[in-house]
Amino acid sequence: MATPQHYIWAAGHFLLLTASLRYIVAWITFKSASALWYKASFTGALISYAIVCQKSLGTPQPNLAFVRRALVDENIQYFLLAFFWFTSKPITITLLPYMIFSLFHALTFTRTTIMSRYLPGPPATAGGPPQPHPLAKKLQAWVKANYDTAMRVVAYTELLILVRVVIGAVTFQNSLLAPLIFAHFLRQRYFQSAFTREAVADTTKRIDALVRKPGNPPMLLTVWDKSQMLVQRWAGVALTPNAAPAGAAPAGARR
């Protein structure tokens, strides 16, 4: 049975999904959208991730061991990043990863909690488990079939966010702190997510192929090689990864 905390967790995801869709649709159609929608989106993220973090880590402890455990927890990282975006000037693309996570969580909550209560399935066979409604089965199949693709989209989107905040820092569209914070976050994702490693490897391979095309200035290749070397040195020390999935449902809420 779902707990009040589970409903609050789900409400955060629905708020994030609804508000971010409103903000992004306005941005795509070149209409003005109040920054309140942007703030509401990350408010939803903070609500949901706060519950997940509390469930996974327990009550905060004033000791170094707890801090270390928290800093390598994926949910804490997304929570802290959401807080940073919440307090920063709106950057539309930063909503996309959170939207994708929330879409899958909202669909799962709808299937396991709402549908199971208001849309019961066919009668169970003698001695067999209860059967879900056919619509719930289709929803579950869609989530399973599209989850990996969605996580790849998140990984590539996070690389685009890094490019966006670096350009924004150079052109004074966002703070100089944004690329530093997000680069550290992305470094953590590289060690914790196979999807991020795949996206980084694929992107690096594509850029490398373009840079090494015959006829390109030798200086371009030199700059590219040195840039790779610097990035590898900076990101070479891995922190201990945490196996908990980012944005996962709070303990006791999974089905």
Score class of each variant (00 low, 15 high):
23 Y>H: 12
217 P>N: 12
48 S>W: 09
135 L>G: 04
65 A>W: 07
115 M>A: 10
225 D>P: 00
241 P>C: 02
60 P>T: 05
211 V>P: 06
114 I>S: 00
125 T>V: 09
163 V>G: 01
7 Y>W: 14
39 K>C: 05
224 W>H: 14
11 A>Q: 00
77 Q>M: 13
146 N>S: 14
197 R>K: 10
167 I>P: 00
32 S>P: 08
196 T>P: 02
95 L>M: 15
120 P>Y: 01
216 N>D: 05
36 L>W: 11
189 R>L: 10
3 T>L: 11
40 A>R: 05
190 Y>D: 03
127 G>Q: 01
66 F>L: 03
81 L>S: 15
200 V>M: 06
80 L>C: 15
145 A>P: 00
146 N>T: 15
42 F>V: 05
39 K>P: 04
55 K>M: 09
163 V>H: 00
13 H>E: 02
84 F>P: 08
123 P>G: 05
255 R>A: 15
106 A>D: 10
99 M>D: 01
174 N>C: 15
124 A>L: 04
11 A>T: 12
152 R>F: 03
96 L>P: 01
90 P>G: 04
58 G>K: 06
35 A>K: 13
100 I>M: 09
192 Q>C: 04
61 Q>A: 15
199 A>T: 07
111 R>H: 06
234 W>E: 09
1 M>D: 12
52 V>H: 03
101 F>I: 14
61 Q>C: 13
51 I>N: 00
125 T>S: 14
104 F>Y: 15
183 A>F: 08
78 Y>V: 13
200 V>K: 02
62 P>W: 00
153 V>N: 02
202 D>F: 07
209 A>N: 06
5 Q>N: 08
160 L>R: 01
233 R>A: 12
155 A>F: 01
38 Y>M: 00
114 I>V: 15
196 T>G: 00
147 Y>Q: 12
15 L>A: 08
103 L>T: 13
75 N>E: 01
134 P>M: 10
173 Q>W: 09
15 L>W: 07
147 Y>N: 13
69 R>K: 14
109 F>N: 09
17 L>I: 04
19 A>H: 02
67 V>D: 07
227 S>G: 15
64 L>A: 12
149 T>I: 10
118 Y>G: 12
190 Y>V: 06
188 Q>W: 10
240 T>H: 07
125 T>I: 09
162 L>K: 03
24 I>G: 01
28 I>A: 06
204 T>L: 12
229 M>H: 15
22 R>T: 11
145 A>N: 11
182 F>N: 07
194 A>D: 14
198 E>P: 00
226 K>L: 13
20 S>T: 11
250 P>F: 07
134 P>N: 03
131 Q>D: 03
200 V>W: 01
204 T>I: 08
104 F>C: 03
160 L>D: 02
51 I>V: 14
248 A>F: 06
33 A>C: 01
189 R>F: 02
141 A>E: 11
31 K>V: 05
254 R>W: 06
59 T>F: 13
168 G>H: 07
179 P>L: 02
125 T>C: 08
109 F>P: 06
29 T>Y: 08
245 P>E: 08
130 P>V: 04
244 A>T: 14
29 T>R: 15
173 Q>G: 08
52 V>P: 02
92 T>D: 10
196 T>F: 05
151 M>K: 11
228 Q>I: 10
155 A>C: 01
217 P>H: 12
75 N>W: 01
54 Q>E: 09
148 D>T: 14
199 A>F: 00
80 L>D: 04
